[in-house]
């Protein structure tokens, strides 16, 4: 790992102390771009540039490229927005997957029991008041 690399254009030549492990102890380990000419920062920077080039090819621009939201993040966000439990959101999501995104049939206490949805229509099949 003694390979010498040039600092990337626009980046400071000296390491930022914030990113040095053990800063101030006299035995700091650099893991940010190396101001002392050592690795390993070149690989992530190259990877970022590669990703930007791929995005440019696929989307035509690097602007507006959106980091996809993971499922747990999505579930939490929707649950908070609609004041329902995350479990209720997961139930609907699973039902929607089963219906290919066009229809869903599910049962959850947060929605008052058995419900189904199809192309813009929510219908509660068995409202709690009618349940025997």
């Amino acid at each position: 790992m003694d390979r010498k690399v040039r600092p990337a254009a626009g980046l400071p030549r000296k390491p930022n102390r914030k990113y040095c492990e053990g800063a101030g102890t006299g035995r700091s380990t650099l893991h940010w771009f190396g101001g002392d000419g050592t690795e390993p920062s070149a690989v992530p920077i190259k990877a970022m540039r590669f990703n930007a080039r791929v995005a440019l090819i696929i989307f035509g621009t690097t602007q507006g490229v959106i980091m996809p939201l993971n499922e747990e993040g999505f579930v939490a966000r929707v649950a908070i927005r609609n004041s329902v439990s995350p479990d209720a959101v997961r139930t609907i999501l699973q039902a929607l997957r089963s219906g290919g995104g066009h229809m869903a049939q599910f049962s959850h206490p947060d929605f008052g029991g058995m419900s189904q949805w199809s192309s813009g229509t929510w219908r509660c099949l068995f409202p709690p008041g009618l349940a025997a």
């Binding site: 996809p68 999505f74 999501l93």
Partner: peptide, 15 residues
């Protein structure tokens, strides 16, 4: 804008 999953997108469209 942030989800790719068709089911999740259908969910948000209804919302």
């Amino acid at each position: 804008d942030e989800v790719n999953d068709p089911a999740a997108r259908a969910f948000v469209r209804v919302e």
